[in-house]
Design a protein around this nucleic acid. Sequence first.
DNA 1: GTCGCATTGGACACCGGTGTCATAAACCCG
DNA 2: CGGGTTTATGACACCGGTGTCCAATGCGAC
Lengths: 350, 350
Amino acid sequence: MAKHKQEEGPAPKLTINDIARLAGVSKKTVSRVINRSPLLNEETRDKVEAIIRETGYVPNPQARALALGRNFLIGLVYDNPNAQMVLSMQRGILEALHGTEFELVIRPVDRGSNHVMDDIRGFVTRQRLFGVVVLPPMSENDALARMLDEQGCRYVRMGSAMLDDAEHMVASNDREAVADAVRHLIAQGHRRIGLIAGPHGFRSAQERREGFEMALTEAGISLPRSLIADGQYTFESGLSASESLFDLTPRPTAIFASNDEMAAGVLYAARLRGIAVPEELSIIGFDDTPVTTRVWPPLSTVRWPIVAMGRAAALKLIGTAIGEGADVKEPSMFSSTLIRRGSVAPPANN
Amino acid sequence: MAKHKQEEGPAPKLTINDIARLAGVSKKTVSRVINRSPLLNEETRDKVEAIIRETGYVPNPQARALALGRNFLIGLVYDNPNAQMVLSMQRGILEALHGTEFELVIRPVDRGSNHVMDDIRGFVTRQRLFGVVVLPPMSENDALARMLDEQGCRYVRMGSAMLDDAEHMVASNDREAVADAVRHLIAQGHRRIGLIAGPHGFRSAQERREGFEMALTEAGISLPRSLIADGQYTFESGLSASESLFDLTPRPTAIFASNDEMAAGVLYAARLRGIAVPEELSIIGFDDTPVTTRVWPPLSTVRWPIVAMGRAAALKLIGTAIGEGADVKEPSMFSSTLIRRGSVAPPANN
DNA sequence: GTCGCATTGGACACCGGTGTCATAAACCCG
DNA sequence: CGGGTTTATGACACCGGTGTCCAATGCGAC
């Protein structure tokens, strides 16, 4: 329809020159106002700011990017099987970016490929990204961190343990969180507790496993190797991994699954076998994804503050740039909470 | 491949001038090579291309953006309650963008707010976006489409019906898909079929409702108003909406829920009431989200090709730009498939 | 041999900001 | 009241590309 661009001009597109002319100053002075340069007369600043406000002028980010050799873009690099997690992270980061001039550019990668590194390098250098947030398990790759450093690209890694200094890391304490969850099972009277572990090579899997073992050790409960089954963080892997646990005699009375997808798989497998949850089997998952409340019974799980962590990561990145309340140090370590729903009960007979 | 250059240094950062010097031509000639200008000597082109290839030179996108007044960024605008859908769409778009110089910038908005329009306008004009993909329900907003047009911003709208010409629209045929699903229920022998409708103001909700009514009308089945319950596309709304359906006498023997979340709610409510699924109640959902296979019994549902549609949308946008196999016309209309799982069975008694 | 035309390449301004440095005005002190 | 210092502002080049326009070259035609 509106193909004819008439008086309905496609936006005024004011430039710094227009503002300079209107204010009767040089473009450099306008630039100083925009960049909050301290060596500026109050009066001049006010005058220019008034003009900017009433014209609604906004500096062209492309020109700034060119002049500064750096874009106002934050990249999000991930290769994550967990959709919910990725989306929440995006939300958290965007919350922090909201109201700033930064935008979020997303970049899923394939960590299996042998040019991931080149791929990411190209991404950050071509776009002259201001910085990137890296999600697990990519974030566990130290070579990647080193490369980003070399490229002069700021970065923040998300993870389940501190793998880097506070400036470059936002972490949750998975080990302690899992230990808490397992202590809860123990407090309910469980003694034969199975673990569905996450995939090898995932730091989170390792941390969660250590938390699991820690709680049992504390309580003086021995842990036969047979009570640990390997999973891949997928529903199907949880389903099949629990089979081996169900075949045990005596059967475990509780299972901790290293994430919710696998916990849902355990629940499903239990139903297939006619094992009543929670009467005959207690289950705890990890992540607090929506699936936990869609199944029956709703799954107890561990919730970690993904959105808040995403926000913190973004603030760490841009904190230096916006430099308003300059030193609002974002926390680097976040703790998780056990969410009690209907999938845990004391064991039937002990 | 071109791994010749040192792995160290914070990137060589070649410019068009360097290439021009190395090739012994002017920068404009290099520019012509990059932009595939036809008025160029074969010999010159080959020479310059060789240099570009062996140095690994990549033009600076910021400079191009400034000179062209347009960025190589695609925006994704959405206000969608369905996480899975958003993520799949991102995936589809990124698949199409892969290997091009385009990047994806995401922009969730709040369609309730009364400055959404200004927000989006600012987004596309400030960043000089090449184009945007708009997801439902934002895509149903014609004023938004008009505004984007005025701003000279390309756009493609995703939706559940053709609301615009093929150039600007990628749609699934929800009405027909739902009709098929309901025909399936009728073929199984169901006559009292309930509908959990989507929220008013969502075109998809309307289309799905019309498909539902269409199938019943075809079969000569009357549809009392009481068999339609309003939902909000959320699990909770599906849960509570189904209560009113369960209170009916006689109770419906099947329910079509306008999306999977609500279908999961129906299933949950059924379990709370001790209604056996599928023996006493058949359920069909819509979207084929992962939750359908996590619950028991797994839910029959309608699958629509989100990823393929995202890919098509992105290709429509950039098609003109890459202009290689110039006229690879992407389809605009996609059809959906009924996925049969365990939540449908013939009614117990009729 | 000269002219006209098509083809190819380059000089230069420009996109809209920022950095550097010079300079004018204001200030300070002896 | 002059010289040195500080402060506020502007002129100008520059970031790395692209568009415009003109010059050089080659070649056939007269």
